[in-house]
Design a protein around this nucleic acid. Structure first.
Lengths: 146, 146
DNA sequence: TGAATATGAAACAAGTATAGTTACATTTTA
DNA sequence: TAAAATGTAACTATACTTGTTTCATATTCA
């Protein structure tokens, strides 16, 4: 059913890159903020690289930077870069095709499940990384007179 | 985490009960349609019973019937009866609270993830079991002149 | 009363995915 | 050449799902 925490960690990573846009960050320094192992970070960075969201350089003084503006990265971009599977899976093994119900349930469910997932992704598509970072900064400095 | 197909199987079960509303169905006969073990069915029926969607009777000639009209059961009711966890989980272990990003990411993500999940559930809430059964019957008998 | 039929629940195995860790080859820079 | 960084493989531990067997319990009916 549920997705992995890769998506949440990926947003964390990218928010960290945006707030430190003046320098490339190593997987070790990112891991210190996420509170995990650098290899876990590198595995996620591999997906983000493949999706073209970040750019990584080898060697001493290497590390990772955002590949485009935080305004041009949506949470849906990050979601697709980090998660594989359908949120709402169909049956583990195919139903009995000799039963009318078994024959017809999956095409109907597949359509409905796709609509449900699309609605979720639409919310993610409407939120940019820049907005997330802005909300995080508002969280860090709450207004005294709110 | 690996995905659960309980939700899809639960819809299958309830659709089968609706199309055989004249009789109580045993877990064995349901399992024959789903193509799995009766105990798997009984585990899901236990959740549906607890949620008040079906009513089960013991003994010879026992079995399960819908507890209310298929018009009054939405896919979101079934979803909540069968699935436990959040769709979009936060970090597996808490981020570094000494980092500004680590401190602020989770409350922001939690709000966004809740909105995304709510959008998905809204789609499910707008689809009744009766509609699903109707779509299945349309699937079984396509119009010749469509 | 007793046999038949059904559920509910416990226990176990197998399969799969995630998260964390160690280790090492490779690339780049100073 | 040494240092610092990545990419990747391998391994462990954990957790969840699915399928299965087994058995106690409840209900019906001859």
């Amino acid at each position: 059913m549920s997705a992995s925490s890769r998506f949440a960690v990926a947003v964390h990573i990218l928010a960290l890159l945006e707030t430190n846009a003046n320098q490339a960050l190593s997987s070790s320094s990112i891991a210190a903020s996420v509170n995990t192992n650098p290899v876990v970070i590198r595995r996620i960075l591999g997906r983000l690289n493949k999706a073209g969201l970040v750019h990584t350089e080898y060697g001493a003084d290497g590390g990772t930077r955002l590949a485009r503006s935080a305004n041009e990265i949506t949470l849906n971009d990050i979601y697709h870069a980090t998660e594989n599977c359908r949120i709402l899976p169909l049956h583990a093994s195919s139903p009995n095709q000799d039963c009318r119900c078994g024959r017809t349930i999956q095409p109907v469910l597949s359509t409905i499940f796709s609509s449900a997932e699309a609605a979720m992704q639409q919310v993610l598509a409407n939120k940019s990384l820049a907005e997330v970072v802005h909300e995080m900064q508002a969280q860090a400095k709450p207004q005294a007179c709110s």
